[in-house]
Design a protein around this nucleic acid. Sequence first.
DNA 1: GTACAACTTGGAGCACACTCCAGGTCAAGA
DNA 2: TCTTGACCTGGAGTGTGCTCCAAGTTGTAC
Lengths: 138, 138
Amino acid sequence: MIDNAKTTSSIKQAAEFTGLTEDTIRYYEKIGLLPYADRTASGRRAYSKRRLEGMVFLTRLKSTGMSLEEIKHFQKLYEQGETSLAQRVSILVEHKNKIENEIGRLLETQRIINYKIDNYNEVLVNPDINNTACDPIE
Amino acid sequence: MIDNAKTTSSIKQAAEFTGLTEDTIRYYEKIGLLPYADRTASGRRAYSKRRLEGMVFLTRLKSTGMSLEEIKHFQKLYEQGETSLAQRVSILVEHKNKIENEIGRLLETQRIINYKIDNYNEVLVNPDINNTACDPIE
DNA sequence: GTACAACTTGGAGCACACTCCAGGTCAAGA
DNA sequence: TCTTGACCTGGAGTGTGCTCCAAGTTGTAC
């Protein structure tokens, strides 16, 4: 018998691949965010490469501020098939815009923090300045 | 008697200025994230312009991913006076780096989402393509 | 002076996203 | 065969960050 290359991964390998914990993966499946995973004959989860990549994209959406409820909604739309295509595009476009706004806010804060760091360094060099830009939060 | 220009704001005005709710402002004070606010003779909170600007900077730190515990720590360092200057700079530098990484992650995700949107649009124009890049999460 | 709104406090409750646990099954090596 | 450990399920518990509420006080407009 030919030793077929293994084509699926255990939950442990899925956790390593995605950076999620095994508990989190089971939790996501439980709440319907991830589709019910295929199982081996003995009932253990077996993930295809494609599913693993799907999970990575999902963690991307999460790490860029999409809530589990929204991700779950997106997943459910996918399961409805191609009738939901336009709706899925609009969710992605909206999320893209949200990311754009977020990047803008981060850049602005970065600018402000840089300004503060400069002021702090001035005061560190010359403690007599007593620069108000060093105030805790201002 | 001269009608002095009002120099302090009520909690309601502070909420409007910062975008926080009144409850949240009181909560932040309660947990020590904000210093105990000055009060009027009758016990109501009265914020100076400087304090309001401090609160805005705080909400910036929060909205860019700093936890309340970290912000509180920063505030406590400030209250310790100038001996904590160097420590405060290093917190700001670290947060700046965190923001930089976050921006990188957002840009990367934006790129991926754009790629997906393009693929979706192709499928919407020509439904026979059945492009796998439209998969839910991949 | 009498409403009514805007505050005050302390403390309870809640939403989100996990995280942990008990008690059981299954697989593989010594 | 026995042990070890990876996995399973259902459900309880946790941390963070609010959010709401009750009961009381104060300020203002009529």
